[in-house]
């Protein structure tokens, strides 16, 4: 799931000239499995995107008809729009919720409490997405937990519709993806030299200024890395939009599922590749931002010296 940083690789140049057969032998089972189930299958999928579905069957022969139909249909674009909106809103919400949580976690002085909080944050990752979506359906439904409280306290007269709405899907996704935002932020906080914050305090900077000028700029990389992960996972999410959107929140992943069920494989193949291109573009974009940010941070550091 993660776009984990590659481990340090020494002596890269030496790779070019060597043909160490033992390396190839060790890698071959993994390469064969991945080539077969992933690469060959994805290539077949690509070829299906150049077929056409009409009169209830997939026509023989290749054409760009399905691609053209997808790219000129306003429905397709609205699905792409909803998918991207879901990705963006989820990233913003997880960052706004995740950053203060990570900061609070980092500053907890009690070791026991810190481990307990870690455990509570990361153990839901082990619970199935279906279970957690089901939980949110119970919490957000018209007769659910939240509406029951709101009605009883007289905050609203009618139940607030959240289940089977965009808002419900977003809440469910934020819940599922929050750990993927907290973890990178936490590790950037751990790499932050506490002396920097201490020096700023010694020089008389108030807490808010220290946060704005020292802590946040030096940990924004964690936010970008977390956003990259959360965005890529949010736009590809299938179960949560399907279960909490109830057919009213149409995203690409759900569209693929519906089309496969309706035997329109060519259109499902096009949607799959559109989703893949969106994920790749987003990952490239966030990586570029991360590089630019690292460059700026280093330049500032050099300048300050």
């Amino acid at each position: 799931m993660s776009i984990a940083p590659a481990p340090p690789v020494p002596a890269r140049r030496a790779d070019r000239r060597r043909f160490e057969w033992r390396g190839y032998v060790l890698l071959s089972p993994a390469l064969i499995a991945t080539s077969f189930v992933f690469a060959v299958a994805m290539a077949i999928l690509l070829s299906y995107s150049f077929r056409e579905f009409s009169q209830g069957t997939i026509q023989s022969g290749h054409s760009t008809a399905t691609w053209r139909a997808f790219l000129t249909s306003s429905f397709s674009w609205s699905v792409v729009g909803t998918t991207l909106k879901l990705g963006i809103v989820t990233v913003v919400a997880t960052a706004l919720v995740g950053y203060p949580m990570a900061l609070a976690l980092h500053r907890l002085s009690s070791r026991t409490l810190r481990y307990l909080a870690y455990f509570l944050i990361f153990s839901p990752l082990m619970t199935s997405v279906v279970v957690r979506s089901y939980g949110w359906a119970l919490v957000l439904g018209d007769g659910g937990f939240i509406n029951n409280l709101l009605l009883r306290w007289g905050v609203v007269d009618l139940p607030v519709r959240m289940l089977y709405e965009f808002s419900g899907v977003t809440i469910g996704l934020v819940h599922i993806l929050l750990p993927f935002m907290i973890f990178p932020i936490l590790s950037s906080l751990q790499q932050l030299d506490p002396m920097l914050e201490q020096s700023a305090a010694d020089l008389g900077a108030p807490g808010r200024t220290i946060f704005r000028r020292v802590t946040l700029p030096l940990t924004v990389q964690g936010v970008i890395a977390g956003s990259q992960l959360v965005f890529a996972l949010a736009i590809s999410a299938f179960a949560t939009p399907a279960l909490l959107g109830g057919g009213r929140v149409q995203v690409l992943a759900g569209q693929i599922y519906t089309d496969v069920g309706g035997l329109d494989w060519p259109n499902a193949a096009v949607s799959s590749y559109v989703l893949l291109v969106l994920a790749l573009a987003a990952i490239a974009l966030f990586s570029a931002v991360l590089r630019a940010q690292t460059g700026t941070a280093r330049a500032n550091w050099e300048y300050a010296r």
Binding site: M1, S2, I3, A30, L31, T34, V37, F38, A39, V40, A41, M42, I44, L45, Y48, A232, I235, S236, F238, A253, I256, Y257, V260, W265, A268, A269, S272, Y273, L275, L276, A279, L280, I283
Partner: peptide
């Protein structure tokens, strides 16, 4: 290449594998 399946949406991997 071995890390590539991480980036591709799982629903696309599943659909592709299903056809294969």
């Amino acid at each position: 290449f071995l890390a590539a399946p991480l980036i591709v949406p799982k629903i696309a991997i599943g659909f592709a594998a299903f056809i294969l």
